[in-house]
Design a protein around this nucleic acid. Sequence first.
DNA 1: TGAAGTATATTCACTGGTCGGTATACATCC
DNA 2: GGATGTATACCGACCAGTGAATATACTTCA
Lengths: 197, 197
Amino acid sequence: MARSATSTRERIVSAANKLFYGDGIRGVSLDAVAAKAGVTKRTLYYHFRSKDDLVAAYLAGRDQPNLALFRKWFEEADGALPAKVEQIFRNLARSARHPKWKGCGFLRTSAELANMPGHPAIKIGAAHKKKFDAWLREVFEQAGIADASQLSRQILLLLDGSFAVVLLHRDPSYMETAGEAARSLVDGALRGRVARR
Amino acid sequence: MARSATSTRERIVSAANKLFYGDGIRGVSLDAVAAKAGVTKRTLYYHFRSKDDLVAAYLAGRDQPNLALFRKWFEEADGALPAKVEQIFRNLARSARHPKWKGCGFLRTSAELANMPGHPAIKIGAAHKKKFDAWLREVFEQAGIADASQLSRQILLLLDGSFAVVLLHRDPSYMETAGEAARSLVDGALRGRVARR
DNA sequence: TGAAGTATATTCACTGGTCGGTATACATCC
DNA sequence: GGATGTATACCGACCAGTGAATATACTTCA
């Protein structure tokens, strides 16, 4: 058969991405994924050993694009460091207003599979957040902030908190509140740096 | 048949609580709930119209006890306001070290049912968080903090963020980090109050 | 070069089991 | 005797995963 422009495997992961993110892991059958990918279920099982395998591939596919987007938002923002951090939250609030937005796929998966702590998908989610944390910490270190590690963790707590809260209340303004809190914390850390000279 | 000390309905809700909190909504069948409650499934359906109904009852049953616990932690904590707020996070970290801990039932349910925004269980979860927010806001208002509403929302973001992050990384120390951030924010708000006189 | 063999990729049809929900009947109590 | 509560048994739909067969592409070697 003629090979399509996108590989079969890619089409399956793309279909899984839309369905799993939209309806959750246990809410989506592999019949549905196969149908959306235009493939029989048996073909799906040729490319992936199990549903858990496909779930892991779904999250692995979101890792890099997500990180790149956050970095882009930060780099394109104007102003000093606190304002640049806040801008990430502003952009997030804008994307959360999209009707298909349903929170953070990594966090939602870890919530749904909380009874399987060692699940590959959860490890991928944890690694994703660690990468974001490491990037933020480096940004803070280069700005001369003393406890950059603590600050980056606090910003991440606000970020993930806003995912959870906005998903619950369906009110993206919480992300702006989180952004203001983040700005306060970064501001405070910068003042600490100056005072300590 | 002789009526037991706890009503049949209570036993069903108690069984649902343990199972839904432990394994998630879609991960638990009503057969399993009925079996754990020592009741046939038909009896369960006599007391609850549907699974969604039972899920709502499960979360409604966690509302008051949860709020009472947070208030108790706050009231029993020593020190000034920032320290008392931080103590909530410290206590949460302690409870998160229990092996059966699996995050916040309200947030996990809203994550799992994100494709059903109007689900009764999600409304109950949202109302629960609003109650906590209102209590915290009142505490801040009585302490003379100007923008008590904004501050209470920020604390809630840190709290829910720590639920999500600790569930993902299985590392309760994030709750202590969140507590320190919360203390910073309350401290800053109190200094703002003094400066503005 | 071309026939035979092998690895890759895909399909149809199916299975054993689970799930939410129900029809019907029986028991208990005011 | 009617309202309340519980039990047995069942249904149709769905779901993760599989068996057997087939089509296509690449490799080997006489």
